[in-house]
């Protein structure tokens, strides 16, 4: 028996790439900041301009950290869903998590008008958006879990997730019909996704959820590997199928749910990154894949965000659009090159 590859060099390379992407991401923006100034600031020194110090520590660094967490988290939850449903097209939102979040936010923004000026101002603070999105995804998740325990077929969960997507989209459409232009714009801006404008408390909270999600998913690697053979084989090798399905759904919800709550729906990273990673790490072992997918997701998200903030200009493009613009061609390229998506 040959020894299994450990991919040490690849991991080292990915980590270096992550730091490079992080520095470049912080460096570029409406104001370009030299890399050495960033390094000085990050290790506790003073930047030569005090405005740089402020921009780096209070604006760009939290945004970069959110990008790392969101990219990694979405990519890992995409991998989990692809393995659970053994479907290469599954992504973090197949369970309806982002539709749930959209519904929560839509109810908040589009419904807030009903309460009039003062109350709606109170309702629409940063935290209430996060809370509404979290509640929305939690509600959908709860329903999916209840259904999971009543049916035997895992694939049915997939269809139920899709149905929830349709229902929430319809409710949002009805709500939009009765709202004014300003509210609609606010809702649409939320749906563009935004990595920035997070307080350090927000970043800390997101790190907590994502860190927990990463750890739990890594601990489930053995079960995930068994699922690669299909449910019947997995059961015959001593896997508790229901328990495993339950945990995978919970982990995905923690990761995708908290990320959607903080930064809004972000498309394609969760679907594309696992496939990209498999081109490089030619293994199906989740002990290797989970950290690899996490790193690749973070790097891709940092790159997308660097593009989205349109260096040297004052404009910022919606991150959700950029991830699709980058992600969709990647999936097409993979399909054309390999003819099929393996997982």
């Amino acid at each position: 028996m040959e020894r299994l590859k450990t991919y040490r060099v690849s991991f080292l390379f990915l980590i270096l790439l992550l730091f490079a992407a992080l520095l470049i991401n912080i460096s570029f923006g409406s104001v370009a900041i030299p890399i050495d100034e960033i390094v000085t600031t990050l290790i506790g020194g003073e930047a030569s301009k005090s405005s740089w110090h402020f921009i780096i520590l209070d604006y760009r660094l939290p945004k970069a950290v959110v990008a790392v967490l969101a990219g990694g988290g979405l990519a890992v939850s995409g991998l989990l869903m692809q393995t659970l449903f053994r479907n290469p097209l599954a992504g973090p939102f197949v369970l309806g998590i982002s539709s749930g979040a959209s519904l929560g936010v839509a109810l908040l923004i589009l419904g807030a008008g009903a309460f009039g000026g003062y109350v709606s101002g109170l309702l629409l603070s940063q935290w209430s958006l996060v809370l509404a999105a979290a509640m929305g995804s939690f509600l959908v998740l709860l329903t999916v879990l209840v259904v999971t325990f009543r049916i035997k077929d895992t694939m049915a969960i997939l269809i139920i997730g899709l149905m929830f997507g349709s229902i929430t989209a319809a409710v949002v459409a009805v709500l939009s019909y009765f709202s004014n232009a300003e509210q609609l714009q606010q809702y649409i801006f939320w749906s563009f996704g935004s990595l920035g404008n997070q307080s350090w408390q927000g970043v800390a909270m997101l790190s907590l959820f994502c860190g927990g999600g990463f750890l739990l998913s890594f601990l489930r690697s053995k079960s995930l590997n068994a699922l690669l053979l299909g449910e019947n084989y997995a059961k015959s090798m001593g896997l508790h199928l229901k328990r495993t399905t339950f945990w995978i759904i919970i982990i995905t919800s923690i990761l995708a749910g908290s990320i959607t709550a903080f930064v809004g729906p972000i498309a394609f990273v969760g679907l594309a990154v696992p496939h990209l990673t498999r081109q490089w790490f030619t293994t199906s072992n989740h002990f290797t894949l989970i950290p690899a997918v996490m790193l690749c997701g973070s790097i891709l998200m940092l790159i997308c965000d660097t593009i989205a903030q349109l260096p040297f200009s004052e404009y910022t493009l919606p991150i959700n659009a950029i991830t699709s613009l980058v992600g969709a061609p990647v999936v097409i390229w993979l399909l054309v090159r390999k003819r099929k998506l393996l997982f």
Binding site: M1, L219, N225, L228, L229, G230, Y233, T283, S284, L342
Partner: peptide, 27 residues
């Protein structure tokens, strides 16, 4: 009769999965 869901596994990985009942939490 069903084929394993993932055909991306190497032969060695697939056969080694048979040891799952005996391996530790990391497999």
């Amino acid at each position: 009769t069903e084929t394993p869901a993932s055909k991306n596994l190497t032969v060695q990985e697939l056969i080694s999965l048979g040891r799952q009942p005996y391996t530790n939490w990391m497999g």
